[in-house]
Amino acid sequence: MSNAIEIKNLKKYFGKNHAVDDINLSIERGEIFGFLGPNGAGKTTTMRAIMDFITPTSGTITIDGLDSKKDSVEIKRKIGYLPSDSYFYGGWTGREHMDFVRGFYGIKTNPTELIKKLAFDSRKKVKSLSTGNKQKLGIILALMGNPDILVLDEPTRGLDPILQNDIYEILNDYKKAGKTAFVSSHNLPEVEKICDRIAIIKSGKIIKTTTIQEIKQLKIHFVTVAFSKKIRSEQIESDDCEIIREIPDGYIVKVKGEIGPFLKRIAPYEIKDIEVAHANLEEIFLEYYKK
């Protein structure tokens, strides 16, 4: 059985700008796949190529074994898409948008439950809706065709934590139903909560594809250590650690990998106080970007 989304050697160049430069991704059925990277890394371009908004310079994208260019209409029946910036017809209500989208899918679609779950007022004109409510409408429209695959471009950007959690819940329900989601984000704690695997994209190239568990195992510790006597930085620095800041009587040190060797190195000195903190996913992520 083919993968839900298969991207092979995808390139998209806009003149000299290599927005996406030879990327490969395989997203399996039933997984929630996070696509991480800063602004301009190529996340949105990749998603637009999946949706056939733009034509790749080269490479192929297949969705459920169907070609994204040739079978674009068939593919869009399977995909629910949420753009990074959702725009709507200002003079219409949410309900009018839903009726319009329903016209493409037939009467099988009924967003009543979603409307209820998201506490969305579908009678209000879109121009009077807040950013959060517009995003709710975008989510409702993306899910209306009962898609097998969701392509969500930064679905929680600009939302408050309560709304973010609503969207995480929807995605979890979606995953439980055995469906697939491809979600872009710059928010690592978010993908940590919802994704099975992630790919990190930088300057149009995939720099890492990994599971959330694996990335968590790439340990980074922040050690705040104070000594009874003055210790020079050279006495504790090595390849696996880096002094971030000097503090009164000590240092804040970033230790990559196992912490044991570092602790052994500072054990001979008289320690007044020590605090060890695990780096969060974001800090691990930033570490990748330094490469």
């Binding site: 949706m51 056939d52 209409v73 869009k76 753009p83 989208v101």
Partner: peptide, 14 residues
């Protein structure tokens, strides 16, 4: 210009 083309292009229509 208004961004609403995204709604149309995401629909199953050629």
């Amino acid at each position: 210009d208004k961004g609403t083309i995204q709604i149309l292009l995401a629909m199953p229509v050629s």
